[in-house]
Amino acid sequence: MIAAQIPGPSWLHSLPTRFKLLVLLVSGAVLFPVDDILILATCVGLVIGLYASLGSKGLVQLRLLRPFGFMMVFILGLHAISGTVETGVSVVLRLTAMVLMANLVSVTTRMDDMLDAVYPIFLPLKWIGGSPRKPALAVTLVIRFAPVLLNVYGCLQDAFRARTGRHSSWRLIAPLALQALKMSENVAEALTARGGSKGLSNND
């Protein structure tokens, strides 16, 4: 669940991104209707085997699934109350296999490769007069400005603490939202000054 990357290279890193996504999609669709505990347990074992094939840096990733584990225990508990423990076990195994698979794709694929791989789904934007470049531009804007907003929140916290002695308050969210909007005005102006999100070449 935590998409910290496993440092490459490995055989999984070098597989084409679209192939990995396709395998993930197909295996999800195949696993979804399966209820047999033995088959599902085998699948979990196989996926763990895939992590193991990346060596210790792959197996370390499994440890990061702890928050997911709590959720699984909770679901198993709810099934136990309903008297459907067996269904509960197969559900937990199926979810574990699917989540581990999906996580494996994420941790062995760089974000920009992932973005390139899904770029074609934005091509239809052209039909309505949009630009398929815009989603990618929006993604980079988020990556660039999320830390900036955290920094703004930190400054607000300091100012709040300097006057109240208290550490933090939900009251700071309103000025944070305001500053985000004001800053977005400046950034939009700077983007327009450089030719805008459509670009100057008009060739896409």
């Binding site: 531009l137 980079t140 804007l141 660039r144 900036v148 800053m183 400046n186 950034v187 700077a190 983007l191």
Partner: peptide, 9 residues
């Protein structure tokens, strides 16, 4: 303000 101009990480 350079922080408002730079768009990329």
């Amino acid at each position: 303000n350079p922080d408002h101009q730079a768009i990329f990480p």
